[in-house]
């Protein structure tokens, strides 16, 4: 091998390595968006065991609220706040008026939330139209930063990853390490017994539903800053967050994080190596996980 050829092949290998790392990092940052959406669902569906088909609609609504507020005020943080509060309050209203009464009747709750999602999506189509929009991000953030090994990488994706890690750690701490988290877990395991200890379980459930919805609204602004907001995205994100929550293990924050990371990685790698089958692989991931571990990666086995 001549010196020239050697250098070439070395450079080629380095290129492949960089690309492999880039795809991995892209997968993780995409997973960060999936995790933000799924974190709300892991509270509502995973922990409270309330089947909501309207989670994707909450995501899209949050995105649109953020889009309007950011367009009017130019302040991204205000947009994220408005989306979280707005969607959270709406979630609370829906829970109080429509879901609370039937919380133990899965079939009814699924149908009610499905109906809400269809109505909500059509209302948003009427209000915002069928074309794609995006939440504007400050121009200073629309740059690439130099990363070791990777070269230039979009700053916004790094920020999203950090936000997701922050939200994930906060949630894990809240659910597993605080008194309120213990109350929630106790309420889910045995609501009558928890109520008997003097805790107002109705308030706890209402608060969790509102908080889960608020997380979806926030995720809409975060995701909508990177990806388009338009009709159809609601279904996509509902589907992906269900895959994340089910594969990760119901109610486990760590499981949702691992699940989201895996879904992001699988979709990015398959986009490069098997683009035609990118979607198939994502669902194959869920099938394989459930075949090997029916309770999900981090889920507790039920008796």
């Amino acid at each position: 091998m001549s010196k020239h050829e050697f250098q070439y092949s070395k450079r080629c290998k380095a290129g492949e390595m960089t690309q492999f790392l880039l795809i991995t990092f892209n997968g993780l940052t995409l997973g960060a968006v999936y995790f933000l959406v799924a974190s709300g669902l892991t509270l509502i569906f995973g922990l409270m065991r309330v089947i909501t088909m309207a989670h994707g609609t909450s995501y899209l609504l949050g995105g649109y609220i953020g889009y309007v507020v950011v367009r009017e005020t130019g302040n991204w943080i205000l947009g994220a706040l408005a989306a979280s509060v707005g969607v959270g309050l709406l979630g609370l209203l829906i829970h109080q008026l429509l879901i609370r009464k039937f919380q133990d009747d899965d079939m009814r709750v699924a149908l009610i939330t499905l109906g809400l999602s269809l109505i909500g999506t059509d209302l948003m189509l009427a209000a915002f139209g069928g074309t794609a929009t995006q939440v504007a991000i400050p121009k200073a953030l629309q740059i690439g930063v130099e990363l070791p090994l990777l070269g230039t990488y979009p700053l916004i994706r790094i920020l999203l990853l950090l936000i997701a890690i922050g939200v994930g750690f906060g949630l894990w701490f809240f659910v597993n390490k605080t008194r309120y988290g213990a109350v929630v877990r106790a309420g889910v395991d045995d609501s009558q017994m928890t109520a008997a200890t003097g805790i107002n379980i109705k308030v706890v459930f209402a608060a969790i539903f509102a908080f889960g919805s608020a997380l979806a609204g926030f995720a809409g602004v975060a995701g909508g800053s990177l990806f388009p907001l338009m009709p159809g995205q609601d279904g996509t994100y509902l589907l992906f967050s269900l895959v994340v929550v089910i594969a990760g293990g119901m109610g486990s924050i760590a499981g949702a994080a691992i699940g989201a990371g895996l879904v992001g990685l699988v979709s990015q790698f398959s986009l490069v190596y098997f683009p035609t089958y990118a979607l198939v692989f994502t669902f194959a991931l869920m099938v394989i996980v459930l075949a090997v571990r029916p309770q999900g990666l981090m889920g507790k086995a039920t008796v």
Partner: peptide, 14 residues
Amino acid sequence: WVPVGTTDYATIIS
């Protein structure tokens, strides 16, 4: 050749 509906192009761009 990417599937219709692909919204994340970071990897393709790289």
